[in-house]
């Protein structure tokens, strides 16, 4: 895909407050990562250097170079979840999915990601499967929720 192909996604955000960020979010949502051509396109449309746009993209965890999976599992690593065993659960998640944190499966179906607090800390541990929150789960429930997400 060349730089022009991203125009329709990026153009609506030109001139908006924080437009580069919102445009990159739109690209990330549509393509599950930020392709280099999207950076080139944004640089042109926002009248920035490619380095500047690359700098913005690299600063934020939400923008990724490699494609995220169709099913994104984001497990909370922060303190309130640690207090109820998220470290062990995170190891379980890695085993169950056959992935380390930050990886996407070869078939593009899954990615496993770290997240730092989901605001579900009163019912920790917590995770998001795509945008759906789940909390107070154990290893068995993790497996069941993952199966359910696959079946969908």
């Amino acid at each position: 895909m060349n730089s022009e192909a991203f125009q329709s996604i990026i153009l609506p955000w030109v001139g908006k407050v924080g437009g580069v960020m919102t445009a990159m979010r739109a690209v990330q949502t549509a393509h599950k990562h930020i392709p280099p051509d999207a950076i080139t396109c944004a640089a042109k449309l926002f009248n920035l250097s490619i380095a500047e746009v690359r700098g913005i993209v690299s600063f934020y965890d939400d923008f990724t170079n490699a494609a995220q999976g169709d099913i994104r599992v984001r497990v909370c690593q922060a303190e309130a979840c640690q207090a109820v065993g998220s470290r062990e659960l995170s190891r379980h998640a890695e085993q169950a999915m056959g992935l380390s944190f930050g990886e996407t499966s070869a078939d593009g179906q899954f990615s496993l990601e770290k997240v730092f607090c989901l605001g579900l800390c009163a019912a920790a541990p917590a995770m998001l499967i795509n945008d759906v929150p789940h909390s107070r789960f154990d290893a068995d429930r993790f497996d069941a929720l993952l199966d359910k997400a696959i079946a969908k």
């Binding site: 580069v20 979010r25 700098g55 923008f63 730092f116």
Partner: peptide, 23 residues
Amino acid sequence: FIGAGAYICGEESSLLNSLEGKR
């Protein structure tokens, strides 16, 4: 305006840069 997964953007001046579309 939706952030992009950076804790430091809770710090007010970092937040303002982010809101301006910067790092």
